[in-house]
């Protein structure tokens, strides 16, 4: 038997990692469930409706009812579908959306993995999420699903470039790919956060994030007026639920990353002032991270309630002719400022 198999510390470390993954994923699943509730309530209020109100007090048990319904429904395999790929696709969408959470820093020292290339890892995993949708569209043997998958492929590849360039700005200011180091580079109070010097890149990043997760107003992938439901038209029951889960955890991930990369992660806006030292709640901590993430999660729903869907050619124009030039120019401006001696 090899050495590492009998070494207890190896197995303890494995157990520690699995436990850490559980501690992140279980709350995440609960948040996804209640995010759907929040979405229906908030969009309801925006449209002067009540939203879900029947199951439990103020409809609070609605997500649980929905989960039970989805889990007990049959997963229908369409005739002529590519069986293996049809069932693989939901997992291919979910795994990257959950895997990226491994490197997200929640508080100083509170993370599952603190890897050097964390930012690249997150970017790589979010780009892998596209495969779930593309495979689903092709394997369903349905023209609507295939058209949805085609749109998705074009859209994700276009916006990924703008997203990557927006992150280059973060990289230039922080000088590190490590997410925790990026947060630490923003310490010193709200004026030291990266959203001020990187304002154009922040906007590009946030809008690209909405486009990458196929949320309104960029949801031509499942635009119900022309494609019925797009790539997941043939999915039912728990297979559909897994797609849902992947989409919502990707939305939460983009919110968390926006908070981490541009708004100082766990840092308090009053950091270093006397007020923050006197009142412990106002000092840096995980609650600031949660608050910022929740705000951007709200923005996703706000956008959905506010903007009409983009036309396909408008999406492509925005990605290639507006966002990419904006990011390139801002990277040049940052480089010039760096060269001229401005730092931070």
């Amino acid at each position: 038997m090899p050495d590492w198999m009998t070494d207890l510390s190896v197995w303890l470390r494995v157990g520690e990692i699995l436990l850490g993954a559980m501690v992140i994923l279980l709350p995440l699943l609960a948040v996804v469930a209640y995010y759907t509730y929040a979405e229906r309530k908030i969009v309801g209020f925006i449209q002067m409706r009540l939203g879900p109100s029947r199951v439990g007090p103020r409809g609070l048990f609605q997500p649980i009812a929905d989960v039970l319904k989805l889990l007990t429904k049959e997963v229908v395999l369409p005739a002529q579908a590519s069986r293996g790929l049809f069932l693989l696709a939901p997992l291919a969408a979910l795994v990257p959306a959950l895997g990226a959470w491994a490197v997200v820093p929640f508080d100083d020292g509170l993370w599952l993995a603190n890897i050097d290339a964390g930012l690249l890892y997150v970017l790589a995993l979010t780009s892998l999420g596209a495969y779930g949708i593309i495979i689903a569209g092709w394997a369903s043997n349905s023209k609507y699903a295939l058209l949805g998958a085609m749109r998705q492929a074009a859209q994700v590849v276009s916006y990924e470039i703008a997203m990557g360039f927006a992150l280059v700005g973060v990289l230039m200011l922080s000088g590190s790919l490590n997410l925790a180091a990026i947060v630490q580079a923003q310490s010193g109070g709200i004026l030291d956060w990266f959203f001020l010097p990187l304002l154009p890149l922040l906007l590009v990043y946030l809008v690209s994030g909405v486009a990458e997760t196929n949320r309104l107003p960029f949801d031509v992938v499942e635009g119900e007026s022309e494609l019925v439901a797009g790539f997941h038209v043939e999915y039912s029951g728990s297979a559909f639920a897994v797609f849902f889960l992947a989409e919502y955890s990707a939305m939460i991930l983009i919110s968390a990353l926006t908070a981490t990369l541009f708004f100082g992660g766990w840092l308090s806006p009053l950091e270093g002032t006397q007020i923050a030292q006197a009142v412990p709640v106002l000092d840096s901590g995980i609650h600031w991270w949660l608050l910022k993430t929740a705000f951007f999660m709200f923005c996703f729903l706000w956008f959905r309630g506010t903007f009409p869907r983009y036309r396909y050619d408008q999406i492509m124009r925005l990605g290639w002719k507006v966002f990419i030039p904006v990011t390139l120019i801002w990277i040049f401006v940052l480089g010039a400022a760096r060269y001229a001696g401005f730092t931070g």
């Binding site: 790589a124 596209a130 998958a149 085609m150």
Partner: peptide, 20 residues
């Protein structure tokens, strides 16, 4: 990670796009 990001995340997505 760059191999995953560039080749799998972008180049092969377009590859699949055509093949499909």
């Amino acid at each position: 990670i760059l191999l995953v990001l560039v080749y799998i995340g972008a180049v092969l997505v377009l590859f699949l796009f055509v093949v499909m």
